[in-house]
Design a binder for these strands. Structure first.
Lengths: 124, 124
DNA sequence: ATTACTTTTGCAACATTGTTGCATTAAGGA
DNA sequence: TCCTTAATGCAACAATGTTGCAAAAGTAAT
């Protein structure tokens, strides 16, 4: 199972890397303009996740989005905050923000999902 | 538009209030055993949200869940942490945990969505 | 209890999102 | 160029959520 570079994969990877905001499957589909099947997009996204090229974020409305981020590749930590703008609907990574919190005993944390919503700098 | 108390609404409200964990639409549907239509559940949940009896939480996998919590009714603040157990799949409110974070300028925050995943006390 | 008003429900139909199986296509190393 | 197998397209399906409309059921007044 050696991964191959196909038209679809290359294009989708480019799209996500060059996008400032996280993209959903349907947004990607619209950008591709029929370059490949809907199913292929799902499968390519899965592969890009496996290869740690992108990461997955659940938006505050439950819509799943995909983004690449700088720190991912180097430090392999996807534990950063995301910001969801209620006006322009953009979802962005705030990679430098590290929240602190104090949990009760006996909870073992392995992942964090932290999204703030409101107005982004462009919209406020 | 004066809200009415119907069988479906009463039962669903009871279900959510008496549940320790947040419930999804499908979990509610299974509990109701055909008491009402699928569509009715969606509509009742919407009304309960409007009336601030329950609140909505997006789980880490994008599944939307509903819960009632003590502090909601009194302080009207849904800004607390949630915990999603990867083993028993439960989603619970951690109402006393208040995270701190420092955002860059120009972001206006109006809502918070913070879910930690891992193992809950029962499962760890 | 009956009536009248309006909310709520059920049903059917539809839209969106995501998954799976399988035959076909194409990437890339020999 | 050939060969192997990863990747794709298509069809079919499942799950989740939404909408319109006629019928049913709350609730307040009589």
């Amino acid at each position: 199972m050696k991964p191959r570079n196909t038209k679809a994969k290359t294009k989708i990877k480019e799209l996500i890397i060059s996008s400032y905001t996280a993209l959903s499957q349907s947004e990607i589909q619209n950008s591709l303009q029929g370059l490949c099947d809907r199913v292929t997009i799902y499968r390519v996204l899965e592969r890009l996740l496996d290869e740690d090229i992108i990461h997955k974020i659940v938006n505050t409305d439950g819509v799943i989005k995909f983004a690449s981020c700088q720190s991912c590749s180097s430090e392999h930590s996807h534990n950063h905050i995301h910001f969801s703008c209620q006006k322009c609907k953009s979802l962005t990574c705030l990679e430098d923000v590290e929240p602190t919190y104090k949990l009760p005993n006996n909870y073992k944390v392995s992942e964090m999902n932290f999204t703030l919503s409101g107005l982004c700098p462009q919209c406020s």
